[in-house]
Design a protein around this nucleic acid. Sequence first.
DNA 1: CGTTATCTTGACGTACATCAAATGTCGTGG
DNA 2: CCACGACATTTGATGTACGTCAAGATAACG
Lengths: 242, 242
Amino acid sequence: MSVRQIIPMVHCAQPCASCEARPYSVCNAISDQDLAVLAANVVQVAVAAGSTFIVEGEKPVDFYSVTRGTARMFKMLPDGRRQIVGFAHIGHFLGLAATDTYGFSAEAIDPLELCRFSRPRMEAMIADFPALERRLRQTAAHELVLAQEQMLLLGRKTARERLASFLLAQSAVQAVGRAPLATVHLPMSRLDIADYLGLTGETVSRGMTKLRQDGLISLPEPDRVVLNDRATLAAIANADLG
Amino acid sequence: MSVRQIIPMVHCAQPCASCEARPYSVCNAISDQDLAVLAANVVQVAVAAGSTFIVEGEKPVDFYSVTRGTARMFKMLPDGRRQIVGFAHIGHFLGLAATDTYGFSAEAIDPLELCRFSRPRMEAMIADFPALERRLRQTAAHELVLAQEQMLLLGRKTARERLASFLLAQSAVQAVGRAPLATVHLPMSRLDIADYLGLTGETVSRGMTKLRQDGLISLPEPDRVVLNDRATLAAIANADLG
DNA sequence: CGTTATCTTGACGTACATCAAATGTCGTGG
DNA sequence: CCACGACATTTGATGTACGTCAAGATAACG
C-alpha cells in the first residue's frame, strides 16, 4: 500500500499532440504550435493501483495531470481517521492545492497514468504562456466551488442525501463531453466512498441497499450503479423533498 | 436581514495608496506607480451589519475586497439548513469561487467596508498586470488548501476537535502580521460558528463551556475568548491526544 | 425597566457509528 | 476445473455523540 511503484513510461515522439486527456485538461490552454514546448517539459509515468505518488506534508516538487485511471486525494489524522478530499479522473490537474508542502496525499485507485511536470519548469511555462496562468486560476476557482459544495454536503446533509449527491456527481464527471450515461462505474471501494462522504463503509452499504430497494438505482455489481430515477435522486440530493 | 443596505462611500483622492487592507490583500500585487489604475477601477462601499451583498445563484457581476469588518459566506438548502463556507476578514478577496453564478451568498456580520470591482474592469486589469493574475491564482490555491482542511474537520473531527481547530484558526487569522494575541474576538454568533463547524448552537455552547471548565480557555464575554493553553488546544485540534 | 435576541443548561431522542457475523468475489495453486 | 484463503461487501445488534425540544439566564436596547 505505502510502497511506491511509479514507472516512467517509454518516451513517445509527440505525447501531447495525440493525448486523449488534452481536451479535458489544462494543457488545452497551450496552442498546437506551442505543443512541443509542453511535450519537452513533461514526463509520462504509470502508477500501480494502491500506490502513493503524493505525500501530504512533503515538499511540492511536481504537478501532475491524469491521463488515465482514477486517484484518491486524502488527508489523515494521527489516529488513522481519513478524509478523501476528492477523486481525480482523466484531465484532472493535481498539485494546485499546496502551500509550502502538499496539502494532501494521493494514491492510484486503479492502474493510473500521469503526466508529471516539475514545478520550476511548470512555473517557467506559466510565465511564458499567460493563457496557462489564466487556465490554472480558473481551474483553482472551479475546484473551490466544488470544495464549498462538499462542505455543504459534509456539514449539513444526511447520509441518504450525501449518497444521492455522490452518485449524480460521479455520473456527471464520467460524462465529460458525452451525454450522461445511465450506468455509472465506481472504481473506488465502499470505504473510499465513506471517507469521501464523512460516513462509514457500513452506512454507505446500507444506504445503497435502501436506494436499490426504493427502485432509484440498480446494482448489477457492487462497482456498477444504474441510475433509474435521476429526478428523484436530484430531489433527494438537494433536499427538495424527502 | 434580506434587505440590502449598501451605501457608496465618499470618494477619496488616493483610496488605494493609504489603504489599510492593501498589505493583506491581492491589491499589493499592483506596484505603487500603477496604483492610480487600481483606484480608478474601485468603488468603496459600506454594508450594514446583517445585510446581504452577494446572493448565491445570481450572475457574478462584481469582485470584492474586504477593507474593514467581517462577512460570512454561506450556502443554503431549500429547507433552511445553512453551511457557512468561510468568514471574510480584512484583506479577503471575494468572488473567485464563482462559475456562471455565485457559488455562495455573503452577509455582513458587523459594519463592513468593501472595495467593489466590476468583473469586466477587473478582468481587464488582470490582462494588463500578470502579477495580479498570478496573485489571484495563489489566493485561489490557498483558499483551496483551507477548504480541504475544513473538509477534514467536517467529515472526520469530533465537536470538541472542531471547536479547538476553530479557535486556533481564528486566533491565527486575527494575527496577520502581528504576533498571535492570547485573547480572540469572535464577531460571529454561536449559531454562525455552529453552521461553520457543522454543529448546532447548543453543541457549540456546551463545547465552549467544557473547554472553559477544563481550563483551556476563558470566556470573559461570549464574544471574547482567551486561549490559556494553545499547546493542548492544538493537540485536541489535530487529534494528537484526547 | 420591560422587550427581545442570544447564550447557556437540562432532558430526551435519533441517525449514524461500532462491533460482529454472514455472504459474496476473486485470484491462486493443486 | 475446482478448492481454498483473503478481502470487500452486506446485514444484523447495540451503543453513543450529537441533535432536538424546552426552559432559564444574560445581555442589548429603547
